[in-house]
Design a protein around this nucleic acid. Structure first.
Length: 188
DNA sequence: AGTGAGATGGCCT
DNA sequence: GGCCATCTCACTA
């Protein structure tokens, strides 16, 4: 299971290295397993696209000020949730958004590669909501493992982040990472 | 295939 | 009150 050392590093590196890792959700005695194929890095107080830009600290963002390895979940557009993992330490409120994954096991179908393509769908299908916000990675709830699957660096794309026009120039920073040619990855 | 609007509620100023 | 780290459906063509 991935733990503290993995997350207490540079957020960009964590975002890149989360590609290919298995995300495991335990829910009502079942196990949902998916392989991460798209992530985004949010770089804290100096990143105009980040919830903690300028050190903003509110009830919602409080989770990002926890140590690396905590789960940060917020609601968006009144009906979707987004799953993030906190990185670095309490002084650096940064996180990685999980945007898409490939269904591996436990879903009604693993044929539909688009089932988990997008942060909102991923949370909906994996039964992830705000009840998990602020928890540390937990094998009885939600956690990550490295099963040895490798994503070659040449097989990863760096792209601008999605849906943050208010961030100005920062919306173009190449902090979105995706597995090349994977059909769960939406737009280029 | 591509565009546009609506859903819907918590969060922030 | 206005804005969202989104998605789906209905429309055009």
């Amino acid at each position: 299971m991935l733990s503290a050392e993995f997350f207490e590093r540079s957020t960009k590196k964590v975002a890149q290295e989360l590609l290919g890792k298995l995300l495991i959700r335990k829910y009502r005695g079942k196990e949902l397993v998916a392989r991460i194929v798209e992530t985004e890095a949010y770089l804290g107080i100096t990143d105009p696209g980040c919830h903690t830009y300028n050190g903003r600290r509110t009830k919602r963002t409080e989770t990002m000020y926890l140590d690396g390895g905590h789960i940060y979940i917020y609601m968006i557009y009144g009906m979707y949730h987004c799953l993030n993992f906190v990185t670095r330490d309490q002084k650096s409120p940064e996180a990685v958004l999980i945007r898409a994954a490939e269904p591996i096991q436990g879903f009604k179908t693993t044929q539909n590669l688009k089932l988990l393509s997008g942060p909102g769908k991923l949370c909906r299908e994996m039964k992830i909501d705000k009840k998990l916000n602020g928890l540390y990675l937990d094998p009885s709830q939600l956690y990550l493992i490295d099963d040895g699957f490798k994503v070659n660096k040449r097989e990863t794309l760096s792209l601008p982040r999605v849906g943050i026009p208010y961030a100005g120039e920062a919306q173009y920073w190449p902090l979105r990472f995706a597995v090349k040619n994977h059909s769960a990855v939406s737009k280029l």
